[in-house]
Amino acid sequence: MKNRLEEIRKSKGIRQEELADILEVSRQTIGSLENGRYNPSITLAFKVARYFNMRIEEIFIYEEETL
C-alpha cells in the first residue's frame, strides 16, 4: 500500500518526531510508514487521517495486486 504521509507531513512542516509524539507511536514507525515498509492498522490510519483532517483514502492509497 502506498501513502502520501511524508508529502503531507512535510507540507505541514512537522518533523517525524513530532508526528510520532502526537500519534503516540515511535519515530521508527513513522519512518517505516513513510517508506512503505509497514502498513498501519486501521486505528493508526484513522488517527493519522484525523490529525491531518483528511480522509484515510487521501493519505493511504490501496492498490490491488495484479497477477
Binding site: 510520532a20 503516540e24 507511536v25 515511535s26 514507525t29 517505516s32 509497514y38 492498522s41
Partner: peptide, 11 residues
C-alpha cells in the same frame, strides 16, 4: 509506554 505499545513494534 509508547515504545511498549507501539503497534509496529508489537508486530
Amino acid at each position: 509506554r509508547i515504545n511498549e505499545n507501539d503497534e509496529r513494534y508489537v508486530q
